[in-house]
Design a protein around this nucleic acid. Structure first.
Lengths: 241, 241
DNA sequence: CCGGATCCGAATCGATACTG
DNA sequence: CAGTATCGATTCGGATCCGG
């Protein structure tokens, strides 16, 4: 028996031996959003030591959770195996559970695109979305920008690139440059804000104005905020505040 | 920010900070079966260092997951708070996930009463049980003895005490001494066996005969084995072997 | 830049001994 | 029973370095 084994023949014990080491489940969280290169993972986990990231990736491969895929062109990505993808409901449930214990963010806590994407998936209520017309939302939290498209019971979240994020500060909703062909612009744009922070579990405060928070719905009506709240299970009172 | 924090404002990160330390989730697993004293936990986690157990219990209390309750008579127990109990579906799902990766037990792996109880809860299919008449099963794995009573969609598992476990070796099913008033004796008695090992994720092999495994249904018919397999989602072929 | 490997001090874990 | 105290063994964190 390995020296560091828990010494029990049990499913929970086995699971914890596979994905219970420090940082491992956060790597899985980011890979649940999509395949990622080594550097992407490092950027998404700013405080992970590089040797630990390399070690965990090896261990997760040995565990059959992660696969290393060379890219046709050059470079390589890590992606979850089918077995690893089975962790999705568990990670989402853990996120929901942990969310309830979250207080105010520490001043130098960070919100990453992948953690925010998973937070949206966590909060998404397909049953609430099903009754509504398809809607797109842009979310800006710190320097992360995401576009969430809700359509029937489906949720699609993608990152906004630098051009699309160009619309910040006071002219939110004005610029339209970045919208790509297959993906119409958002029906609403949210910036930081306490209500948003509530659901998407993230607020980054690079400047004071943003820290105090704003929720703006520049291209739709205020009812969109309520729809957003219902779809993502925000406390509407907090969102309205 | 604490030096050891992951530095992210995210539900998953928060959850992992609360219950991601080594041994923590296994303490939660055992407490999901019921309140336990310090020495019970130590016995259920044979390889945990005592200082780590003490430290984790403090951390879990600070996290609001565990509560320390003085006993009226003397001594004290640890129990989960309502927030801690919300981890049950997550721990069960993790157990199911880890179960799929379990190979043969290491020779000195151990099966504890609490891990076995949680394994039964993990494998239990209320929908399969619902159609069946109420049935009791006694399970003997190594020196752990449990009585599982399946009734409608409910599953109740309790430990057999030393007297009740007295029926081992060749005279399994013979002795009836220990059955208490409110809890009729079992309809079937299972001893170790490969099929059993399959579901309940446990085999301890104190002697060779037991290691090779036996499945016996002394007081019912063989159909009980199939019923057990369905209710706890065993591979019937493996169970029959 | 990407994908790590290496080195070293700091923090944590594990084993054992001891105590109210 | 319910833990502390101590100390060596591991692991983690931070920084630097390296080959493609």
């Amino acid at each position: 028996m390995a020296a560091r084994s828990y010494g029990q023949y049990c499913g929970v014990t086995t699971a914890v031996e596979l994905i219970g080491e420090r940082w491992a489940l956060l790597i899985v969280r980011d890979l649940l959003v999509g395949p990622r290169r080594y550097t992407d993972l490092k950027a998404g986990l700013p405080r992970i030591p590089t040797n630990i990231l390399a070690l965990r990736l090896k261990e997760l491969q040995d565990a059959g959770v992660v696969r290393r895929v060379p890219l046709s062109h050059r470079g390589l990505v890590y992606e979850l195996t089918a077995y690893g993808r089975q962790l999705e409901p568990i990670v989402l449930a853990l996120g929901r559970w942990g969310f309830a214990a979250m207080g105010e963010p520490d001043p130098d806590d960070v919100v990453t695109a992948d953690s925010l994407t998973m937070a949206l998936r966590t909060a998404f209520r397909p049953d609430a979305a099903e009754a509504l017309p398809a809607t797109g939302y842009d979310l800006h939290v710190g320097d992360v920008g995401l576009r969430a498209r809700v359509d029937g019971v489906a949720l699609a979240v993608r990152r906004l690139d630098a051009r699309e994020r160009g619309l910040d500060g006071e002219d939110v909703g004005g610029a339209e440059a970045g919208s790509s062909a297959e993906d119409q612009g958002p029906d609403a744009v949210f910036v930081a804000g306490p209500g948003i922070r509530g659901i998407i579990s993230g607020e980054l405060a690079p400047d004071d104005a943003l820290a105090r928070g704003v929720v703006r719905v520049p291209r739709g009506d205020a009812a969109l905020l309520g729809r957003f709240a219902a779809t993502f299970h925000i406390d509407p009172a907090a969102a309205a505040a």
